[in-house]
Design a protein around this nucleic acid. Structure first.
Lengths: 100, 100
DNA sequence: ATGCTGCGTAACCATTGGGTTACACAATCA
DNA sequence: TGATTGTGTAACCCAATGGTTACGCAGCAT
């Protein structure tokens, strides 16, 4: 999990998938590296439970499954005590999310 | 930053330092690996801005500097929208932290 | 001064990790 | 059927990483 989000390319993949479902090829098109390299990254993210694969014809469609990120959030939680100045910001963000 | 917290040993070091300041030796005593190995991990965490070094006599005392973790929190923020079921839990956690 | 403590650094080794090219294979299209 | 499209897998390469042992050096103690 932590290893999965350690790589910048993989974080960029997650960012791309936020809100939209993309085909493997479309995903790869956003990066300067080869398609197989992206396929590997996708494999890592998939194994980490961060994205879902759906097959349509020859294409493979990937979408975000951010539930796994909750574990990062849980790990982070105790540390929030230590940058308390940001706590009110966080609370406000949460409330906005709930409304929106 | 993300690379720094990707390693389980380094996360354990951060956990140990939560709330207390420890000497390099005490830190290393908690792990099955050699002291130089821990020194390296500490170096990574230090370069990532996650811990502070203070010198007292021969000892070096390390303490948590979790400000850098705020960047992880910021990265995580947009994804919270996607595991909305947990939002109320998070809000409660934040409020408890503020009270506690 | 001399020794002992508590450390970090250097040098080295084995493994992992991210990259590439070449290939295989399923699904559409003609 | 045969060609084309979209994609993962295999094999391989090199750089980075986490580990080790050996060493060096600053700061107290005597």
């Amino acid at each position: 999990m932590f290893g999965a989000i350690a790589d910048p390319t993989r974080r960029a993949i997650l960012d791309l998938l936020r809100g939209q479902e993309l085909r493997a090829g479309e995903l790869a098109a956003h990066f300067p590296v080869s398609r197989p390299a992206i396929a590997k990254h996708v494999g890592v993210l998939k194994r980490a439970g961060l994205l879902r694969e759906r097959r349509a014809a020859q294409a493979r469609l990937y979408s975000l499954d951010p539930a796994a990120l909750a574990s990062v959030d849980r790990w982070l939680a105790p540390y929030r005590l230590y940058w308390a100045a940001r706590l009110s910001d966080l609370k406000r963000t949460v409330e906005e999310d709930q409304r929106g």
